[in-house]
Amino acid sequence: MSIVVTTPTGNVGSRVVRLLLQAGVRPRVLVRDPARLDAATRERVDVRRGDLTDAAFVREAVAGARTVFWVDPTPHTAEDPIETSERTASGVVDAARAGDVARVVLLSSGGAEKRGGAGHIDGLARIEERLDATGADTLHLRCGYFFTNLLMDLDGLAGGVLTTAARPDAPMPWVDPRDIGDVVAARLLNDAWEGRVVQAVHGPEDLTYLGVAEILTGALGRPVRLETVSDDDVRAALRSAGLAPSAVEGIVGMTAGTRDLVPEQPRDLVTTTPTTLAAWAYAHLRPLLPEAAD
């Protein structure tokens, strides 16, 4: 069983690699800096060193694999994030079209089903479409909002503030990336699926931002209040940070374009994963914050 894993040191990829090793599979991992893999992992995987933005490297590195797990490495801050995402995927798309890769599992996102108007998520929609056109078996995992996104505003949370431009009372799926890794590994190890498959990964429950603030208050042992800002407020902050206009709109559009999103796949036994935000925040977020004042 030949499996390629991209971004093997990321929140999802590292979990996938660990589970594949425990299943007795020696995965091929594509990594820019092998030193970021721990020594025990490096000994047990087939390392291909290179840059995922180099289509020629990707094309050669994935050739002959049964299945590739593709994670778009494009940062939201890229100058033209949608175009960069699509272009970066060209290596794996070309390999699938040529028959050098039989199956591709794509880490996609809720909102990709809109096929437009969802900011940088539109880049994942384009990758989905390009993979679908190759004739290879494709699985698109439409994931909810990562718990780990909360780590991007540790200063705000340390001050007791959770900031968002989303609707405070609108429920949406929140998910632990570790649970996504479990789903990915299970799909990579399952040789039975074929054709075009879409599977959502919704986490254990839909949460509003008001509910998230309440959960964090309990898990972090400090009051956390919600502060809502406008899309224009976010634009102004991103522009002041020096981001290109297309990057600004890519970031703003992810929230603005999915405010009223109804996921294409319903919440059910297959799309629901177990880890709660409260458990994750207590274990992973609370230790990163200073002790709350009495």
Rank of each mutant, 00 (worst) to 15 (best):
E113K: 01
R142G: 06
T138S: 02
R36Q: 13
L243H: 01
A63P: 09
A192Y: 01
A39P: 02
A241C: 02
D132P: 08
E205M: 04
L289D: 08
T134W: 06
C143P: 06
P274W: 07
A219Q: 12
P8Q: 01
M1P: 09
L210S: 11
N190K: 03
Y282G: 08
D100V: 08
E249W: 00
L162F: 11
G110Y: 07
L220P: 09
D155L: 12
S109K: 00
L124Y: 01
L238A: 01
L20R: 09
I82H: 01
P245K: 05
F69W: 12
H284C: 10
V25N: 10
V12S: 04
L188F: 11
A241H: 00
P27M: 14
T164Q: 05
R259Y: 09
I121N: 02
L226R: 11
F57N: 05
I180D: 02
R267F: 13
R259E: 14
A236T: 07
A158N: 15
V101P: 07
Y209M: 12
I3A: 05
W70L: 00
A293S: 14
N11T: 02
P287T: 02
V175D: 00
R187M: 13
A23T: 15
V234A: 03
I215K: 03
D232G: 03
R142W: 09
P173V: 03
V25I: 15
R235N: 02
L20E: 13
W193G: 00
R59H: 11
V161H: 12
E113I: 07
V29N: 07
D46L: 15
V184C: 06
T9P: 00
V270S: 07
G195R: 03
L30A: 00
V58K: 03
I215P: 09
L107A: 13
T134K: 04
A279R: 08
T208A: 08
T163W: 13
T74N: 04
V5H: 05
P8L: 03
T88S: 05
N149Y: 08
G123T: 06
V104W: 04
R42F: 09
S14Q: 15
T276W: 04
G119I: 09
A278F: 07
R42Q: 11
E214W: 07
R28F: 15
A247H: 02
G110A: 09
T272V: 11
V252F: 02
F69M: 08
D179K: 02
R178S: 14
A96D: 07
A35S: 13
C143Q: 11
L131E: 03
A241I: 02
I251C: 08
G218P: 12
E249D: 09
E60V: 14
E79F: 04
A185M: 07
G24S: 11
S90T: 11
R222S: 15
V12Q: 15
D80M: 10
L37F: 10
